[in-house]
Design a protein around this nucleic acid. Structure first.
Lengths: 121, 121
DNA sequence: ATGACTGTTTAGTATTAAGTAAACGTTCTA
DNA sequence: TAGAACGTTTACTTAATACTAAACAGTCAT
């Protein structure tokens, strides 16, 4: 119930942009497509309620045709799929994450590229 | 309430090993040190209740003088600190994790070592 | 044979997250 | 001037997680 206004503002912005050329993006209709009540969406968009759970946020991102990581991040949540990935390597991946903590985004991108190279080659 | 017997069995094993040369590790006293009731610990150790939340598991690992990742992993949980790390790089780290998914532990260790080298050098 | 300490059982409670139904005032259209 | 649709408000609900207090039965030392 604390309310995250950044998430809400961005969501309304994205939804209203879509609404301009698609009448399926009214608050009521969008809420229905996502699987939540208009009541709840209204309050979330105005920061009166916390963002919905990750699953609903991912659904929203799909409908809005954007990358779900942006909305998840604004909501202060992490894609639950990442938790699954970590659980598949429950000692090596925590170690990796703790090691890369503090690295810049560019460094992380280079490391990711190197990991990808390994996979392919 | 499902009950995770592997976590419980291992916990009891570790606690009873400690108890052999330290009377502070009875079920009641250990429960108190961790900050949970003996009722709850008894049921958790016998797999009748789900493991406690991550924070309590980490406290247990400290008291037992073991690496918390083992217990967290048995409990099917992830160190909440990792979520914080991901949120610090909310696009690069999800990408990295999705990229390394499926890599063997040895490969992950090599990658971690490379990340560490970069940091130091 | 009592008191002190075990772990266990019975019977629940507390907290938090994640929402909802229905009515309301406003605007737009027919 | 009625009907339909919009976003909002009021007043609660539901579901899951994470536990707890108190009584109980067994063991051990005194």
């Amino acid at each position: 119930m604390a309310g995250n206004i950044k998430f809400g503002k961005r969501l309304r912005e994205l939804r209203e942009a879509k609404l301009k050329n698609n009448p399926k993006f009214t608050l009521r209709k969008f809420a229905e497509s996502v699987g939540i009540s208009p009541t709840f969406l209204s309050k979330v968009e105005r920061g009166e309620f916390d963002p919905p759970k990750a699953e609903k946020i991912i659904k929203m991102a799909e409908l809005l045709e954007i990358d779900s990581d942006e909305l998840l991040s604004l909501a202060g949540k992490v894609d639950p799929e990442l938790e699954k990935i970590i659980k598949e390597q429950p000692t090596a991946l925590p170690d990796l994450l703790r090691t890369v903590r503090g690295m810049s985004e560019a460094e992380l991108r280079r490391l990711t590229q190197r990991a990808r190279d390994k996979e392919d080659g």
